[in-house]
Every structure is written in C-alpha cells, then in structure tokens.
Amino acid sequence: MDQRQAFILAIVIIVVLLIVFVVSFVIYMRTPAPKGCEKLKIGPKNCEDCDVEGCMIYKERHKEEKKEEKE
C-alpha cells in the first residue's frame, strides 16, 4: 500500500468513526429518559437537582447546607 492510499484510508477511518460517534451521541441525547429517571445526571453543573445519595458531591453539599442551617 503506498503512502497516498494509506493517507486516504486514515481519513476514511477517522471520518467514519466520527460519524458513528456523533450520530450515536445525538440519538442518545435526544432519546428521552425512561419514566422515573429524568433527574439522573452527574457533574457539578447538574448537581443542584440531583438526588443520588451515594455521590460525594451530593453529600458534601448537603453537609454544608446543614451546617449553615444550624448556624
């Protein structure tokens, strides 16, 4: 295989994989979550309305809130 063919193949592979990823990503994001799981999200941005008790961010936040209430 000469260099030009390899170059074209490389671009084709990357583009195909990228398209697969983007399409699956968009479909995943657009699919509505099943009932009862709408609030399941993670990350500092979404932590305001998260109620996963096992999560550390959740715990830290609630500890601080409780302390502030006490004071």
Partner: peptide
C-alpha cells in the same frame, strides 16, 4: 451546541 463533547474529544 449538540455535538460539543464529541468535537472536544477529537
């Protein structure tokens, strides 16, 4: 906006 994360990863 919708495909930000994939673009960042690439």
């Amino acid at each position: 906006e919708e495909i930000r994360t994939p673009c960042y990863i690439v």
